[in-house]
Design a protein around this nucleic acid. Sequence first.
DNA 1: CCTACCGATCGGTAGG
DNA 2: CCTACCGATCGGTAGG
Lengths: 216, 216
Amino acid sequence: MATDPATWPTRDRILYAAAGLMAARGYHGAATRDIAEAVGIQQPSIFNHFASKAAIVEELFEYDQVIPAERAAALVREGGSPACQLYRYVEWQTRWYLEIPFDLRGLREELIAELGLESARAALQRFRRTLNRIVRAGIEQGQFYADGHDFLYPALNALGFEVVRLVHLEQALGDPRRLADAAASFVLRATLSDPASLVAVRAEARVLAGADGPLR
Amino acid sequence: MATDPATWPTRDRILYAAAGLMAARGYHGAATRDIAEAVGIQQPSIFNHFASKAAIVEELFEYDQVIPAERAAALVREGGSPACQLYRYVEWQTRWYLEIPFDLRGLREELIAELGLESARAALQRFRRTLNRIVRAGIEQGQFYADGHDFLYPALNALGFEVVRLVHLEQALGDPRRLADAAASFVLRATLSDPASLVAVRAEARVLAGADGPLR
DNA sequence: CCTACCGATCGGTAGG
DNA sequence: CCTACCGATCGGTAGG
């Protein structure tokens, strides 16, 4: 997809407009007429591209849940210490939300159950399992502080949210890699039993990722 | 307010039902008819207690923004090191969300602007200023890691969310004070330039709070 | 706190 | 991708 939404195919422009409006006013607050107006088409034309309003959201959850869950699982398969896996995931997540053009903050988890979005539900479950596995292994091996994991999942969510917020404020973000490292370091400082080992974790991650790991 | 919502005055039961439904389906997804049904009255009767649907939300923001902002400012006035102030605020916030009966997760910040809720807007601004002051002082004094503050505000929000989620899952939470300490410790480990100083920060907070500080 | 009801807006369909 | 339109539901009012 090109960087300027105005040049995109209608289908993608619908996704883009829907995401933005739902981020501002929530799923029920974003009317299909508002979405159509932002795209520059009439409201019923939306249903030539999507079977329903829920189908638009389902596709947005692909970016917000399905792909991140797959990536987390892939990073675990690539090995490394639990802290290294966590570091690499947060780093990847940050760069992911920086790269995609959609504002996904309107995608509250409750929508998955309300709209019956099966693939998103399965992805969320998979992601939580993967994260739990990393945390449990890290605690067993003494790499993670034993009590910190209660807040890890919401902390990850919050960092994702914050990155999206910063992107859509068009704030000066600086280098994506620097921001990704800052986010991952924040999480790991809160989680590592020995925060001084963060330097070693970062080095381990760099080796595993190679000099210039691709985003996807 | 008693612990069983069924025994409350109608006005409070409207607040309780509205909060719960908005947490599940968002502001626009929670219809006044749904709220009335949960309360056990007819839909138009709601407007005998509140001038509008927005007025219900405005009162809920009192618990979610106005009171926390006041408390943060009060804690700063009570002194102590910046880390101590931050620790005490997170601890208080956790106990606050554990104590109040409302599920406030439907109160997205964007609602404040959309509905023109002036007191909530002012409180949010005040809270952010207070938090920035603490963080700036902590960095200047070398107590906080200089790069961590980007993620502090969203991290605080996330912890609040998570506590509310745990409460409404009716999960075994154990001692509120233990959970409050865990939340505050999580934030401070991510923020302190020397995480080992957390023990000293905790001790400083205990002295300032006295043996048994009241919640309000 | 109720019944009766209002105009506005909702997601979606028919048919081209 | 459009116009015309549907039944359902929305927040809120009138009047008791």
